[in-house]
Amino acid sequence: MMSLAEHFDLESLDMLREVMDDEFADLMRVYIDDSRQRMPLLSQALQQQDAKQLRELAHSFKGASSNVSANVLAQLCYQLEMAGREEQLAGADALIAAIEAEYRNVEILLQDMM
């Protein structure tokens, strides 16, 4: 069984749930839908060796993940953003795989909360 604490900042997540109240589930659904669309775009940008696009996608995914307190995922996205910024794309495929794996965990945990 996965622990929320392994993937989220629990204090921030609880605060978000409290502030959003009835709209929390809607916010999580929007995050999940956006994230599912973002995933293939990361791989596509890497295939095209488009460091700028990769940086921008990783940056926005980092922000969205941070907003839902998915700090591990946000940190991975930050690493990918920095790789794009520095145009160091060697190894970015492993980072994207880590992001995809962590996102799957985050999505499962969020769906369990809704």
Rank of each mutant, 00 (worst) to 15 (best):
R85E: 09
D21G: 07
R38A: 10
Q88M: 03
A45I: 03
A58L: 05
D14P: 01
F61I: 07
M28L: 09
A90R: 08
R36Y: 07
A83L: 12
Q75D: 11
M28H: 01
M20E: 12
V72T: 14
D33S: 13
L27H: 03
V19P: 04
Y31H: 05
S66M: 07
A70F: 05
L95S: 07
D34C: 06
A58K: 00
L73S: 06
A58T: 00
Q48E: 14
G84P: 01
Y31V: 00
S65A: 02
S43I: 14
N71E: 10
S43F: 07
G63I: 02
G91R: 08
S43T: 13
V30N: 02
A51P: 04
E18W: 14
L57Q: 09
L57P: 04
V30A: 01
Q37W: 05
L41H: 09
L89S: 02
L80H: 04
D50T: 13
V72A: 15
A90T: 08
Y31Q: 02
G84F: 00
I96K: 05
L95Q: 12
L27R: 02
L41Q: 14
E86G: 05
M82R: 15
E86R: 09
Q47L: 15
D50K: 08
M28I: 10
Q79A: 11
A45W: 00
A70Q: 01
L54Q: 03
K62W: 04
Q47H: 15
L80S: 01
M15E: 13
L95Y: 03
D22E: 12
Q37M: 06
N67P: 04
A92P: 03
E81W: 06
Y31P: 01
S65F: 04
E23M: 14
H59G: 05
I32M: 11
L57T: 04
A70K: 02
L46K: 05
M15D: 10
Q49K: 12
K62C: 06
M28F: 06
G84A: 01
L41D: 07
S66Y: 11
A58E: 01
Q75L: 08
A45L: 02
M20T: 15
D14N: 13
G63Q: 01
E23V: 14
Q47I: 10
S69V: 11
V72F: 08
R85C: 09
L76R: 13
E56L: 13
S65W: 03
A92Q: 07
R55W: 11
S69A: 15
K62L: 03
